[in-house]
Measured scan of single mutants.
Amino acid sequence: KELVSALYDYQEKSPREVTMKKGDILTLLNSTNKDWWKVEVNGRQGFVPAAYVKKL
C-alpha cells in the first residue's frame, strides 16, 4: 500500500473529508482525482486536498 505524509494541518469541512495534522502518515487509497485524494487516517476514510500531502 502507498503512504503519504501530511504537509499541513487540514480540518475537514464535510463528512466526506478527514482531518489530518502536519506530519501525519496516511494510507493513500485513491489518487485518480488531481485535486482530492482519498486516504485513511486513524481508521477513517475520506478525502484531503492533494496539494496538502506528498507521496513517501
Rank of each mutant, 00 (worst) to 15 (best):
K1M: 13
E2S: 12
K1I: 14
P15V: 10
L29K: 04
G46L: 04
V39T: 01
K13E: 08
E40W: 07
D35R: 14
A50R: 10
K34W: 08
K38H: 13
R16N: 13
N33I: 06
W37Q: 01
T19H: 04
D9N: 09
S5T: 15
P49Q: 02
N33K: 07
F47G: 00
L56P: 06
L3H: 09
G23H: 06
K38N: 07
L29D: 01
G23V: 00
K21V: 10
A51L: 10
A50L: 02
Q45A: 12
K54Q: 14
R44N: 06
G46P: 01
A51D: 10
K21P: 00
E12I: 06
K34D: 11
K1H: 14
V18T: 06
K22Q: 11
G23F: 06
S14N: 12
Y8G: 05
G23D: 06
L3I: 10
N30M: 09
L29E: 02
L29G: 00
L26N: 00
L29H: 05
D24G: 04
F47P: 00
V41T: 11
A6G: 03
P15D: 13
G23M: 03
Y10E: 00
K54F: 11
Q11M: 13
W36P: 01
K21F: 11
Y8K: 12
V48W: 01
G46F: 08
A51K: 14
T32G: 10
A50T: 05
Y52W: 08
G46K: 02
P49T: 01
G46A: 04
L3Y: 15
S5C: 15
A51H: 13
R44K: 12
D35G: 10
G43K: 05
D35Q: 12
V41S: 11
N30W: 08
G23Q: 03
N33S: 10
E2D: 11
N42P: 05
A6Y: 01
T32P: 04
I25K: 06
A50G: 04
R44F: 06
V39G: 00
T27Q: 11
R16G: 14
P15F: 10
T19G: 09
N30Q: 10
E2A: 12
K38I: 14
Y10D: 00
R16I: 12
E40Y: 07
L29A: 02
V18L: 15
V39H: 00
V41Y: 11
